[in-house]
Design a protein around this nucleic acid. Sequence first.
DNA 1: ACATATATTTAGATTTGTCTAAATTATTTA
DNA 2: TAAATAATTTAGACAAATCTAAATATATGT
Lengths: 219, 219
Amino acid sequence: MTHSEENYIKAIFHLGFEGLEVISTNALAERMETKPSSVTDMLKRLSEKGLVHYKKYQGASLTDLGIKTALSIVRKHRLWEVFLVEKLDFNWDEVHEIAEQLEHIKSEKLIDKLDELLNYPKLDPHGDPIPDKNGELMEAHKQLLSQMPINTSGICVGVKDSSAAFLRFLDKNNIALGNKIKIVEKEEFDNSVRVLIDHRQLHLSQQIAANLYIKKINM
Amino acid sequence: MTHSEENYIKAIFHLGFEGLEVISTNALAERMETKPSSVTDMLKRLSEKGLVHYKKYQGASLTDLGIKTALSIVRKHRLWEVFLVEKLDFNWDEVHEIAEQLEHIKSEKLIDKLDELLNYPKLDPHGDPIPDKNGELMEAHKQLLSQMPINTSGICVGVKDSSAAFLRFLDKNNIALGNKIKIVEKEEFDNSVRVLIDHRQLHLSQQIAANLYIKKINM
DNA sequence: ACATATATTTAGATTTGTCTAAATTATTTA
DNA sequence: TAAATAATTTAGACAAATCTAAATATATGT
């Protein structure tokens, strides 16, 4: 498998997780930042290799082999992310790009040893689950702040809206990724929430709460 | 730079260290396990990019930029080898292949952090020196057993002749890579040597001594 | 120095992954 | 449902890296 093929498989996998049953040529082209015609070419190739189901004009989905392949790539990506953060002191938001490269390194033994070194982590630094050696994937353990029940705690691990405006807002209010956060109260009227961050009480609008990802603690 | 270009640069660099002033098309083709015509194509490209000096029929050599590039790749390769052995418990003889892939990962910060994690090693597991961040390369610290002075000690780190016959001989005599070895006496007549390995005295012929690499201790 | 052998380059083709522009199919809307 | 619009595919081209076969340059031996 080439790097490019692996990247397409991964993109189809992720689009699948985002709700799409069958992935359209255009959706995939947008995700891959390429042209639809290139996607068509690649889908034919992947179909011939038995990695995707593909019928002209009907979109694509992964075969069992494709899913297995995708899980293996995702496993590598997320384990490397843990390594970069835990062992090399990278910040959570710097690791994705490097892991995009490392995920293509071919050596089963390397990944198993890395898994061992990191003590078989279940979640990556963004709170996403890491498939185990057999491709078993636990359910997601991150959720939007707006979806958390009252009196639960977690750690800020990501943003949905990554606009400069939103990031500036977080900065201004001293909300950093990695902060522990506890949800204290929800306002029925406007869905705003009161939270506790570093012993500070904050009142956040629904718009804010719906764009901040929280990793549940103790899972 | 593509992976392929990096591999050619590295090959030219290593052939240079093996004594060749100017590298011939055929020598490079053999090293790269490819055809001379492919080498010609690549040398033109590398020449256009300012990485090698190349004149038709005259062979090639690295420019200053080419040397800098090669040192950076070698640095990455050897640091990853140390990582694989020290942190992931790989054996010295399993790491080359994986490091061949890892050496192409692009991130200056990654390599600096890795260097730090490994405590700025000066030698890789095979006893070859690791260029520092500025491309400074200390002189080689491995040598053939036959070149070691009397009463010096070292660690077996590699073989020149990797034939099955030679490896079988080492095995039969309980000489393993990683063993500490001390040279006790040299026989003028046939250049054979008496050595101490694990408190055992052994008498090794010149042929053996000239094919076993020793890493000097305390450097 | 000339013929022969060896080394190297050129020419033309192939594969992968991409592109643009044109053609085709599917979907939406009036 | 027919026309307009959107999505998708095809056709043909290109760059990177490779190959084979043919041509050309260099080196060697007598």
